[in-house]
Design a binder for these strands. Sequence first.
DNA 1: ATAATTCCGAGTAAATTAGTAGGCATTGAA
DNA 2: TTCAATGCCTACTAATTTACTCGGAATTAT
Lengths: 149, 149
Amino acid sequence: MRLSTKGQYGLRAMFELAVNYGEGPIPLKIIADRQFISEHYLEQLVATMRKAGLVRSTRGAQGGYALSRPPGEITVGQVIRVLEGPLAPVECAIDNEEPICDRSGYCPTRIIWIKMRDSINQVVDSITLKDMVDDFRKMHPDKSYMYEI
Amino acid sequence: MRLSTKGQYGLRAMFELAVNYGEGPIPLKIIADRQFISEHYLEQLVATMRKAGLVRSTRGAQGGYALSRPPGEITVGQVIRVLEGPLAPVECAIDNEEPICDRSGYCPTRIIWIKMRDSINQVVDSITLKDMVDDFRKMHPDKSYMYEI
DNA sequence: ATAATTCCGAGTAAATTAGTAGGCATTGAA
DNA sequence: TTCAATGCCTACTAATTTACTCGGAATTAT
């Protein structure tokens, strides 16, 4: 049960934008270079996040991307769900409505999938991009130079 | 981030074996019929579980499968991990050793993947097959007839 | 003997993943 | 006003994974 590279790369890209929040638009090329991601591929992921309202873009020279809200107001869960879809271990646990499946009567496994789902989402919804940045700066005060333009 | 049908079907099959624990071997055909799973496909999943020591088989006529331990001693996590591999959202969070990846220095996302991993495993490791059966019987005391041979 | 079963290895169609490729549109700066 | 930098868009693709199917050999109770 793995996340695809979409969620992984996307979150790393958002971390970069969070680190540089308030410093104007950052071009994708910079993010792709810093995070070792194919720029063209990242473009698609960022497009998804733009459509979902997580980032804003500025076109043309000196353009780039920026978070559309402060890092403290964007959770890891929001990012991952936008790129990966609902975080649920099976389809029938995506929402809480009673599922329609071919097995009549009570499903002995669904309650487990729902517990897994809630537990996963609780984790990612409790962490914001700001938390990630704070954590990074705490662990690597010496590496702040890495994130100047 | 979904479980494959291996984990889903496998757990449902194990539930069946748990419901009938202590009543001799149950043929795959019965399990497949009750749980609406292709018998041939289930065969492969059960083979994996047999090799992992979760079930025992009896060959020949009147043969079948049985749990190799009481339902209270087999967790959902054990079943799922045998069929799906380690429950981790990304490769570098499978174990706790420092990962070797192309990004030198501190990875700002890994701590999140590890929290997700631990949270997922905590859920599945805290539920046994016995818990599933107890829950089923509590919810459907009327349907015990479904599980007689 | 026979029927019921497990056991084993091969094959496969469809879906998903993880990108690539190429070009158009927009804009700041020289 | 030109041009380089940048975002935007659509299509294509190779490799991998998924979810099976198929056919038959081995084993055993009756």
